[in-house]
Computed example of a mutant assay.
Amino acid sequence: MQRNVEPTVERIGNMQCGVGESPIWHAGEQALYWTDIPGRKLWRWNYFSGQADSWALPEMAGCIAMASDGWAMAMETGIFLAPPPRAGTQLGPLQRLATVEHARPDMRFNDGRCDRQGRFWAGTMVFDTSLGLPLGKLYRLDAEAARAGRVDAVIDDLIVPNGLAFSPDGKTMYLSDSHASRQIIWAFDYDVDTGTPYNRRVFIDMNSHPGRPDGAAVDADGCYWICGNDAGFVHRFTPDGRLDRSIAIPTSKPAMCAFGGPGLDTLFVTSILIGDDPLSGATFAVRPGVTGLPEPVLHL
């Protein structure tokens, strides 16, 4: 439920990432997890103690998802399962859940998350976005695919897939392409039984709003929050595509957002390191006056 309050924005900790991505709130630990893609790290920040821990990863992880016992990670060569990380120790051995065959060797996974039924969705992209190559795909990992060691490509012709999110009832899927030549957010009807998106249509043309569409989240009211990369905003759109508000973030390249905190009333926002901006690459906590939804757990 929305409250009429002035949003506050503050930095959490002193962590700085090359590309902070895929923040996920772990209610059981009262902690925020996220990944630094080029830094090849998994981060955790404890809400109450403020302690931050990080673990080295063998590949770049574009996005992560909670599993029943550990974390799923969409990396460069596939999707892996990591055991629960322990402070002061190395991350345990990773189990490969699925291998992906990219169109080129210089590709990796980027944005992704679980749907409300626990299927893991993640998109791929070419490292060098200046090439503008539409070789990215959106993949789905469900229990059947994981048993076969594969992921299923569902949508193609993507340059930089981003903004993946699902409505509270799970029946609408959102997806963006943040490349400068596109800057579009689509909505799909979503079959919750089969995990199939259909009836694709333009939800938001971000060419009409500040910033390129990056990572996103949906709140308990069904509104869609999207990071306006390059413009230093997080925008909230209503389910009918109307811009409801924009909150300024104190760095120009916010990357992805997720609701968390004990009351799910904090919007955590990661960012990308640039130039001499001392706050770039930091992670921020926003109190927007609305609450979010619990993050689904991967079902294998």
Rank of each mutant, 00 (worst) to 15 (best):
G215I: 07
Q16H: 10
G92K: 06
G50R: 02
V192Q: 09
T270A: 10
P38F: 00
E59T: 11
Y198W: 13
S49E: 13
V100M: 13
Q95H: 01
W121E: 13
D244Q: 14
K253A: 00
A248D: 06
A67P: 02
W45L: 09
L97A: 00
P85D: 13
I155L: 15
I185W: 00
M256H: 00
R116D: 08
A220H: 06
D276F: 07
I155P: 06
D240I: 07
A122C: 15
N229E: 07
F166Y: 12
S49L: 11
C227G: 05
I185Y: 00
V202D: 07
L267D: 02
R182P: 02
A65M: 04
D115I: 01
M60D: 04
T89N: 11
T251C: 15
T124V: 04
E295T: 06
M60V: 00
E101F: 07
R147P: 10
I79Q: 03
W43Q: 13
P38G: 00
A216I: 01
G289S: 14
C227K: 04
C223F: 03
P288E: 09
A52M: 13
S178P: 02
L164N: 08
A61S: 15
D244Y: 12
L32E: 14
P262H: 09
F284C: 04
G62E: 05
A27S: 15
V9H: 03
P161D: 09
D177E: 03
H102V: 10
T35H: 01
D221R: 12
W225L: 06
E6R: 04
L138A: 09
L264M: 10
P84M: 11
I272K: 09
M66I: 14
A146Y: 02
Q51L: 12
S208M: 11
R182G: 02
A220L: 09
T77Q: 09
D219N: 10
D193L: 15
I37R: 03
G211H: 08
L81H: 12
S54M: 10
D230R: 09
V192T: 15
F127L: 08
E295I: 02
T196A: 05
L81W: 05
I37A: 05
A67T: 08
M1K: 10
P134R: 06
T89S: 13
T35G: 02
A82H: 06
L57E: 12
P161S: 10
K171M: 05
D193N: 15
D244W: 11
G88E: 00
A216N: 01
W71R: 01
D36Q: 01
V9I: 07
T291K: 01
S181P: 01
P23W: 04
P85Q: 13
G149V: 13
G163N: 12
V126L: 15
A220T: 10
K253C: 02
G78T: 08
I247S: 06
G123E: 04
Q2T: 14
N199G: 03
A98N: 08
D152K: 01
L94A: 01
V218Q: 07
K253W: 00
T172A: 10
M173S: 11
R182A: 07
Q2S: 14
D277T: 13
P84T: 09
S178D: 04
V19C: 07
G241A: 00
G132E: 06
G261R: 07
G149R: 11
G18M: 04
I274N: 12
A231H: 01
F120H: 09
S130K: 03
